[in-house]
Amino acid sequence: MLSTPALVLAIVLFGLGLIGLLSRRNILYMLLSLEIMLNAAALAFIAGGARWGQADGEVMFLFILTLAAAEVSVALGIVLQLSHRFRTVDADALCELRG
């Protein structure tokens, strides 16, 4: 089946993204990892669409693309504010909300 390798690739990409998100401390790299995870999910949709010969998968891919663009624009704004206020992009240094 054509879709199996594509799904495996999606899983690997997702795992890499998750590991990157959890291990990186720089917020910018965490954002990059998030993007990878989003694209992994999108790839899974493409594979699904190809498997059943439906256009839905590609439609979902377009949605995810839009979502990712919106998310990045907001997140970059937040990163800009963080670095402006706290002079750091280290996620662990920013833990004022500790309970």
Binding site: L18, L21, L22, R25, A91, D92, L94, C95, G99
Partner: peptide, 18 residues
């Protein structure tokens, strides 16, 4: 007890979500 889980580290939250 519950407030111990709120560390303020965003990576910790991501891990708990995962």
């Amino acid at each position: 007890w519950m407030s111990h889980t709120q560390t303020g580290h965003v990576r910790w939250y991501a891990a708990t979500v995962a």
